[in-house]
Amino acid sequence: MVDDQIGRTNAASHALKRAGSFISSLALTFLGLTAITFLISRMTKIDPVLAIVGDKASKEVYDKTYAMLGLDKPLIVQYGGYLRKLLSGDMGTSVLTSQPVLTDLIHVFPATFELATVAIVMGVLIGVPGGVIAAARKGHWQDQVIRVVCLFGYSIPVFWLGLVGLFVLYGKLGWVSGTGRLDIGYDDIVTTRSGILLIDAALEGQWDIFRNAFSHLILPASILAYFSLAYIARMTRSFMIDQLSQEYIIAARIKGRSYWGAVWKHAFPNIMVPLITVIGLSYASLLEGAVLTETVFAWPGLGQYITRALFNSDMNAVLGGTVLIGMVFIGINLFCDFLYKIFDPRLRSA
């Protein structure tokens, strides 16, 4: 009984320690991330004072604004100010839309979220079985096919594949719809609730719009899915090869399990933990792939927002978008780390 209690307190203090190190590493990475974006904003050649007062302003006005923006203070103080504003959700105003950057980001994020989520679901549904089959049939033709598919996925420029996809599937065959999220005739019919068109259209029972949105979504989502599929399949394959060489597989086979039974029922459950991390990481990198894909498909999401801002020297918007993607990236990274430690029994009872 006493042993049991000690065990429990140990486990509790362990969990606390883990949560502590999780939070501190989150905070540190956040500080680093914001420090980098702050330095980038100081690297721009655009004079923030001139942007406000214009080049006809007198020296006096210029100096006053310079001091008002806090540019005369040491860099570290300026960074503190930047951080304080950021934490209260103030990312400045976008020059392009004259709205707070945060409002803009909240507005465009659902489109990217929809695209990335559909893509990751497709990537997992194809990539995981693909990787398992490649490992189980290592060296056979199935393995070679999957290897080539993955290799191409690592080598093809995503923006180019998008263009070729548009050319063939939309231009020549007409199987899918073109750029944008909807045909022009369907715009602004559905009220925005979640910002995710498939959900919003389904909620209102507008099945025409649902179908139209889907035919616009499917091509960019498949292209993004291909890239995450390549990564997921390759990692799944190497995890599975590791497991299939273990002795418990031989034991299961001796016991009379069929080969595929051993693969799916014995080996596969053991790769779930590292697989979660891989899926998390590739979901995060989809946000990145979305920057280029959205440009090609005129998809009104985060990626297009950032690139449009780029060309209009709208630094607040660029940095706001960068911070958001960086934070999602770091968040997913750390979350996977955390899951890893929780779900792996060997790491649980140290």
């Binding site: 990475t29 946000l287 990274n333």
Partner: peptide
């Protein structure tokens, strides 16, 4: 680690945008 945690293309984009 901080640089590693950053999405590469987006960071490169922000740098390139700042530098011109």
């Amino acid at each position: 680690d901080i640089f590693l945690a950053f999405p590469r293309l987006v960071l490169a984009l922000a740098f390139a945008a700042a530098l011109g």
